[in-house]
Amino acid sequence: MLNKLRFLSTIILVGISGILGSTVGFASDPPPADEVGASVSIRMYQVEGILPADDPNSPQWASVPESEFNLAPQVHWPERIQEVTVKTVKVKGLHDGQNLAILLEYEDPTDDVKDAAAIEFMVGDKKAHFAHGQPMLQVEGGPVNIWFWKKENGKALDMSAKGFKTLSTQEKQDVSATGAWADGSWKVVFTRALKTEDEEDVQIEPGDWRSVAFAFWDGALVSGVPKEKGSQKAVSSWWSIRAEPSADNSIYGWVIFGLALAAAFELVVVRKLRKGQSA
């Protein structure tokens, strides 16, 4: 009887610790107070049917949850700028398993010929500095892929860089973009295939995280010169982006397995107890 009790108390102890562990141990700590409200990642939701890839005003975008990122004047290298027009950007993403569409929405009071927007990605496994993949002193960095939209020609350029003054237009152009300005804000939608044959391009594998950053230029003319151009721009640091993986129904299999395992555990315990008590 005593041995049986010992055995049972051990398995109950282990069981309760397991439950406590999974509830308390995996609960993550809340983020520091000053980070609350700011996004850290973008989820490109998977859709069935047609992507609103060339229409920033498509009603399809309205229901997509957005991420929002603060922007800063580019101060990392000269020519610096101290004050920029675009302070934050709202980002939405969709994909259909083949192609992706990323919508950037930001406030800019005027529609100017020299307005521009860009998305930057790390390419490959090596970390790249967010300032055009410029060389780091103790870490071997990788290249970046930049998607650069200009209001001037209404097109996007697919570009690469690995350090200052290395920004170049790729031979193979895989990106397109469409911008629309209304009521003091730009909506620019970029689109590309999730995966390309070009090794200079970022490859988006649904489910995998990639690093992404943004840049914006307010081309409003001040004494005949664009207010922001070249390195004088609004920038973000690196954030994370991921194309949503296809729905994984195996999760429900594991949930049922867990339920069954717990029920079986209970059954064994109760049967043992009943035997012990009638013995």
């Binding site: 439950i19 999974s22 509830t23 995996f26 489910g207 949503e244 993986p245 994984d248 999760i251 594991w254 949930v255 049922i256 397995f257 867990g258 339920l259 069954a260 395992l261 717990a262 029920a263 209970e266």
Partner: peptide, 15 residues
């Protein structure tokens, strides 16, 4: 008890 286990399994696996 089994429901709690099931819920834990779901939250630890959900994307």
């Amino acid at each position: 008890f089994p429901l709690l286990v099931g819920w834990q399994t779901y939250t630890s696996l959900a994307p």
